[in-house]
């Protein structure tokens, strides 16, 4: 089943955070690139049902984003999240599991599984306030996976991870992408290069590119920079560039 986003828009008083974004995502890892302020977090929040769009729809299969059915298949890691004081990693995951509607035995099982998956099993009884940034991030990833989501949305998931953790994270996301839809946003180009099947680029609230590595053809970083510097406006746009409301398809 696919995630369908149709003409999603969100305006704030002095800024257009999202401008008629339309796309469809199937299984695999999709990377969302863009500068700070490009609208990535706004888009992700709308996909998670946290922000109500001004217009447009988001559906997964038959379920609209506002339904409980949709949220039951969703896993989300926000850019920044807090925790109730005094919670240990275990407490935190059990709490989130309860919110996601998992039964207690299933919750306990999943908590154990995920803590070892993200490498926190030795720290599970320690309070979260003693955690480093990277550890907290890993805990966030664990909570997003609690309900075995079909749609996993990660906002800047690799921020704060050291290189070894990054590799581990990439492998995990790669595996998950084989079964589910993964959308991850970042402003670190190298992350996307290695794991994304499909690349999306946003600028000023608009989706300016939706395609694969092949469509880009050249080095991703250079391409990315070109988009934001507007160098060579006369060069032919590569396949996948979004012009108006149509996407150029390449290689068919």
């Amino acid at each position: 089943m696919e995630l369908h986003i149709d003409r999603l828009s969100k305006h704030y008083k002095n800024k257009i955070a999202a401008d008629r974004i339309s796309l469809s995502l199937g299984r695999g890892v999709h990377g969302l690139l863009g500068a700070n302020g490009a609208g990535k977090t706004t888009l992700m929040r709308m996909i998670c049902g946290i922000l109500r769009p001004d217009s447009g729809t988001v559906t997964f299969g038959r379920a609209d984003v506002s339904t409980e059915e949709y949220r039951s298949i969703l896993g989300y890691l926000p850019q920044d999240f807090g925790y109730y004081p005094g919670f240990t990693a275990e407490d935190f995951l059990m709490y989130m599991a309860a919110l996601k509607g998992l039964r207690k035995t299933d919750a306990r099982c999943r908590t154990e599984e995920l803590l070892s998956l993200v490498g926190l099993e030795t720290h599970k009884k320690q309070k979260i306030k003693t955690y480093s940034g990277g550890m907290k991030q890993r805990l966030g990833i664990a909570q997003a996976l609690l309900n075995r989501p079909k749609l996993l949305v990660l906002d800047e998931p690799t921020a704060g991870l050291d290189p070894k953790e990054r590799v581990r994270f990439r492998e995990m996301i790669d595996r998950i992408g084989q079964e589910s839809i993964v959308l991850l946003s970042t402003h670190i180009v190298s992350d996307i290069e290695l794991i994304a099947d499909r690349i999306l680029m946003m600028k000023d609230g608009r989706l300016i590119f939706n395609g694969t590595h092949e469509d880009i053809g050249e080095n991703l970083e250079e391409f990315y920079l070109k988009q934001f510097d507007d160098i060579n406006p006369s060069a032919p746009a590569p396949a996948g560039t979004v012009t108006g409301s149509k996407i150029k398809h390449g290689g068919i």
Binding site: C48, I50, R71, S72, Y76, G82
Partner: peptide, 22 residues
């Protein structure tokens, strides 16, 4: 209002039993 105080709102909003329910 503890959810708001401790930055748990985003996480709770995206859960099945949403912040609203909590």
């Amino acid at each position: 209002g503890r959810s708001a105080r401790f930055g748990m709102e985003e996480l709770e909003l995206s859960a099945r039993f949403s912040l609203h329910a909590v």
